[in-house]
Design a protein around this nucleic acid. Structure first.
Lengths: 183, 183
DNA sequence: ACCTGAACACCGTTCAAGT
DNA sequence: ACCTGAACACCGTTCAAGT
């Protein structure tokens, strides 16, 4: 009895993200991930329950990469910072990012991000129902754009054009919210 | 020589959409589609070049289901009608719909839809660059919402709430465009 | 012309066995 | 405790063979 572990869950998740980013989500197989870790596919089952659990773990790892905004900022700047953080994660993990749109996350990382957005929108003066609705619409608009970018739907356009598109989207979204604090 | 065909490409695509909607995209295998058609998987290769071609064909079939808006309508009503048409296709094909976000389509059906949007936005008075940017942002916002809905990201909310969310999104998007014609 | 059987390399997953 | 080998049912795909 007793044998020092060669791999752990977080190493598996990091490796799976690498595989997705280099060769696409379809290339994320138990075999491919295991091979990178110099282990057989069966060894993974000690650390993830099955492939669905692997993919859910990748989602959680992506969400953990979105930084919590500086609490000192005004609410509208906090929302903008979160949008930028989401886009930065998509840029760092373009292959894995589409998982966020297909695997609804109810994990703690997802809840924390949503709560940050709720706090900002409450400070904007919205009532509770409006806060929740605005969060759903803002998050889908931003996820939709960023996932489209990651999936290459804009690949015919230059980076400068895409950057300006994103800035324009943020301006659009600001315009449907109450006037921000002047500071 | 000569043997009457049992299947054709459009039957394969329809069957693949059915499988996706009933059991999810992951269930769309050559074997599963073939079995529904009472044929072996190898028979499909006479009508689709490979599985990627099958998935691209599904995208094209989904796009063909989006109706061209009535030319008599004002430009803002045409855009609203297109958004509704996209959502209707997602409702009819929730399992297959996420393909639209991951497989950028440059086929004729995709181009026709984009051209419809361009025409409406030009009538709104936007210059060519603004037209193209607005089309990218409108389409990603709408696709993002509708794909999220199809993927079940809102499944904790009632249908009435989701319907109202969609209406609110369309109002947001109207607000960033020039004032529509009064009629 | 259209479909099938056999074959290949590859999936996810299980379970008993090795250390 | 952790990993592997062998096994199973299932992938996508090719190619020669049947009608």
């Amino acid at each position: 009895m007793g044998r020092t572990a060669q791999i752990d869950r977080s190493a598996i998740l990091r490796t799976a993200l690498d595989v997705a980013d280099e060769h696409g989500l379809a290339a994320v197989t138990m075999n491919a991930v295991a091979k990178r870790l110099e282990v057989t596919a069966m060894a993974l089952y000690r650390h993830v329950t099955d492939k669905a659990d692997l993919l859910d773990g990748m989602v959680e790892a992506l969400l953990t990469g979105i930084p919590t905004p500086e609490p000192g900022l005004a609410w509208n700047d906090r929302l903008t910072a979160m949008a930028g953080g989401i886009r930065a994660v998509a840029t760092a993990h373009p292959g894995a990012f589409p998982l966020l749109l297909t695997r609804p996350a109810a994990t703690s990382a997802a809840l924390e991000i949503r709560e940050s957005a709720y706090r900002a929108l409450r400070e904007a003066g919205l009532g509770q129902d409006a806060v929740e609705r605005a969060e759903r619409l803002l998050s889908t608009a931003i996820l939709g754009f960023v996932a489209s970018e990651a999936a290459g739907r804009f690949r015919n356009h230059g980076q400068a054009t895409i950057d300006e598109d994103f800035a324009e989207l943020l301006r659009w979204l600001q315009r449907v919210l109450p006037d921000p604090p002047t500071g």
